[in-house]
Simulated scan of single mutants.
Amino acid sequence: MATTFRTGDQLASTVCTTRVIVVRAPSDGIADLSCGGSPMVAAAGGRPAGAPAAGAVTLLGKRYVDANETVEVLCTAAGTGELTLAGVALAVKAAKVLPASD
Rank of each mutant, 00 (worst) to 15 (best):
T18R: 01
L98F: 10
K93A: 09
G45C: 02
L74A: 03
L11I: 12
A89G: 11
M1L: 03
V41C: 12
L59C: 14
A31G: 13
L11K: 11
L59N: 11
P99Q: 06
G81A: 09
T58D: 07
L11Y: 01
P48M: 09
G81C: 14
G29S: 00
G45L: 12
S34F: 06
A56N: 08
R47P: 01
D66I: 09
D66F: 14
G36W: 05
A95G: 10
V97G: 11
A56D: 06
C35G: 09
T76I: 15
S27H: 04
A95C: 13
T70V: 15
D28A: 04
G45P: 03
K96L: 15
S38K: 05
T4C: 06
P26H: 04
G36P: 03
V23D: 14
A56C: 11
A31W: 00
E72M: 13
E82Q: 07
A91D: 03
G79W: 09
A12P: 05
C75M: 08
T17D: 01
V92A: 15
K93Q: 13
D9G: 04
D102T: 08
A94F: 12
R47V: 02
D66C: 14
A2V: 05
G50D: 06
A94H: 11
T58E: 11
T4E: 12
M1C: 04
T84I: 13
G61T: 14
G37K: 04
R6W: 08
T3M: 12
K96M: 14
I21A: 10
